[in-house]
Amino acid sequence: MFNSLILGAGFAAGDILFQLVAFIVLLALLKKFAWGPLMGIMKEREQHIANEIDSAEKNRKEAEAFLDEQREEMKRVRQEAKAMLENQKQMADQQGQELIEAARLESERLKEAATAEIKRERESAVASLREQVASLSVMIASKVVEKELDERAQKQLIDEYLDQAGDQK
């Protein structure tokens, strides 16, 4: 009665059994030899990609932190350099000032020494001049008034001249 069950096709219990067994065997074989490994590699890749993303994220954060650190460091170094430069400038200024001061003092000293020397020279010149004038005057006077003046009047006259000569510097 099964022989014309569906659209005239014969009812073949053997086919049913064979198809079932074949399918189940195929499923088991594929699971073991194909789908299992394939699934494994796909899972592995998924894991790998997830890891890569994680590590990339971590690296990025690290790089950012490092960058911040570097930026801070840069700022600090720049400030240091600026301070150092200012220091140097100040020091140089001070040194220049000191040099100028020393030069000024030196020149002053030299000037003073020169002035003192000049004064001394002049005094000694005046003294020697006075002596010479005195002796010259005496000589002249003695030549001019040798005969007319006595000793006392002559001396008086000489003194007068000497005083005048001493006042006229």
Binding site: F11, A12, G14, D15, A22, L29, L30, F33, A34, W35
Partner: peptide, 25 residues
């Protein structure tokens, strides 16, 4: 009752699928 052509073709189809799957993986 076994329809031998079905048995043959089921075996061939299964074999092809298996070979295809194994070769690709």
């Amino acid at each position: 009752t076994f329809n031998l052509s079905n048995v043959l073709m089921i075996t061939i189809a299964s074999a092809i699928v298996f070979i295809l799957a194994v070769v690709t993986t």
